[in-house]
């Protein structure tokens, strides 16, 4: 576990949100995003990672009219306003799916599975949906 720092608001912990599922087929991507937006108010050290089919959550050209569900993908662009700036996408997951960062709707940092594993090990709390 990493060191906990104290600031005037209390404890700051490292929270990682692990997204491994494609959007729309299940509600996990949407409800995960809802947690992240609430988490922003707690001034914690937040990282969002997109691994496996989770990378599809960030696809640029999502149009959901035809399946009559909410297109929440623009919300990822708003995360910056909530001071959530650590978005990581795994290289192996992109490669396996023939995707590049050009396919994604927000700027992200691409990291290898090994780097992702190191980052995960440094967390205090890992939330997976």
């Amino acid at each position: 576990m990493s060191d906990e720092m104290m600031d005037e608001g209390g404890v700051v912990k490292k929270f990682m949100y692990v997204n491994r599922k494609a959007p729309h087929g299940t509600i996990y991507a949407l409800e995960s995003l809802e947690v992240v937006l609430i988490a922003a108010a707690f001034d914690q050290d937040v990282s969002l990672v997109f691994v496996d089919d989770g990378v599809y959550q960030l696809m640029k050209e999502q149009k959901t009219d035809g399946i009559e569900v909410k297109n929440f993908s623009p919300t990822y662009r708003a995360l910056e306003m909530y001071d959530i700036e650590k978005l990581y996408v795994e290289k192996e997951s992109l490669d396996a799916r023939g995707l590049t960062t050009d396919d994604l709707l927000v700027p992200v940092e691409v990291m290898s599975a090994a780097e992702m594993a190191d980052l995960m090990a440094q967390q205090d709390v890992v939330l997976s949906f």
Binding site: V11, V35, I38, A39, Q44, V125
Partner: peptide
């Protein structure tokens, strides 16, 4: 209650376990 209770639990606990 709200989702804030989940974040608060993560802050206060030594371990957060996810079952899903």
């Amino acid at each position: 209650s709200g989702l804030g209770q989940l974040i608060e639990a993560g802050i206060q606990a030594d371990r957060l376990m996810v079952f899903g």
